[in-house]
């Protein structure tokens, strides 16, 4: 085994945080489980729920594995939000993992306005994001990653993203985020801010740019030196307002 390889402790107990929304007797049932994040119900009615995710520890430290599984049953709508951003701290030689799985069933909608994942100096983060949207399902996802707390260069982040729509690959990406990459990768950006729609393709308002995915979906991404310079909150509001009612 290489001595320079970053290892993730296998002794850490990994509990998967879960948010599931399922149809039951004409209403819907929430299935919740705590992990390194804990779901808190904000609102819950016959067909929709709003849930926020709260950190349960000083996430993320070296060796941590943050697992989150979200599933929205047919015809229901879940709005997920983070209470705060996540900081990956110096790992003292240990990497950490963020492993997120989102499943959206037929006719269901999932929105998640995720807060930033900040990669501090010395942090080595691997993020796996797996998204499966069934035919007729809709996803709207904001995803922000940032290098370094203020005054830092930041650590290393590898984002592996696989999104499918109706079982077909829609967006597959390995995004490297770190300082010192050659020209054309990130430029002088410290923040990568993205909003992705999948299963539907909203109109892009004037002043914004979005890629049209080959499957129904769109990706708008900004590369920024300061996260507050992002105009994606406006795009988020605009696209959210275009989601058809459940």
């Amino acid at each position: 085994m290489s001595t320079t390889a970053v290892t993730v402790s296998t002794h850490t107990e990994v509990r998967t945080a879960r948010v599931g929304l399922w149809p039951q007797d004409g209403r819907c049932r929430l299935e919740l489980a705590n992990g390194l994040v804990a779901p808190r119900v904000i609102r819950h009615d016959a067909t929709t729920a709003e849930v926020s995710l709260v950190a349960t520890t000083a996430t993320l430290l070296g060796g941590d594995v943050l697992r989150l599984a979200v599933e929205v049953g047919p015809g229901l709508r879940l709005d997920l939000r983070d209470v705060a951003g996540t900081v990956a701290y110096h790992g003292r030689g240990l990497g950490c993992v963020v492993d997120v799985s989102l499943r959206v069933h037929e006719g269901a909608t999932l929105t998640w306005a995720a807060e930033p994942l900040v990669v501090a100096d010395g942090a080595e983060v691997t993020r796996q994001l797996r998204v499966d949207v069934a035919e007729g399902g809709r996803l709207l996802l904001r995803d922000q990653v940032a290098l370094g707390r203020s005054g830092q260069d930041g650590g290393r982040l590898d984002c592996h993203t696989t999104m499918t729509y109706a079982g077909r690959p829609a967006l597959v990406e390995h995004l490297e985020v770190r300082s010192g990459l050659a020209p054309g990768a990130l430029g002088d950006a410290r923040v990568v801010d993205s909003v992705t729609s999948l299963g539907w393709r909203p109109e892009t308002p004037a002043g914004h740019t979005a890629y049209r995915l080959h499957e129904p979906g769109a990706l708008s991404r900004q590369l920024l030196t300061q996260s507050h310079a992002s105009t994606l909150p406006d795009l988020w509001d605009d696209w959210t307002s275009q989601l058809p009612p459940i």
Binding site: H160, E173, H174, G184
Partner: peptide, 19 residues
């Protein structure tokens, strides 16, 4: 296999080409 094809991205290159 198609799933094995690398997926490394260059976001700035992509933005330049898109524009």
């Amino acid at each position: 296999e198609p799933d094995g094809i690398p997926a490394l991205s260059a976001p700035l290159l992509e933005q330049w080409q898109h524009a």
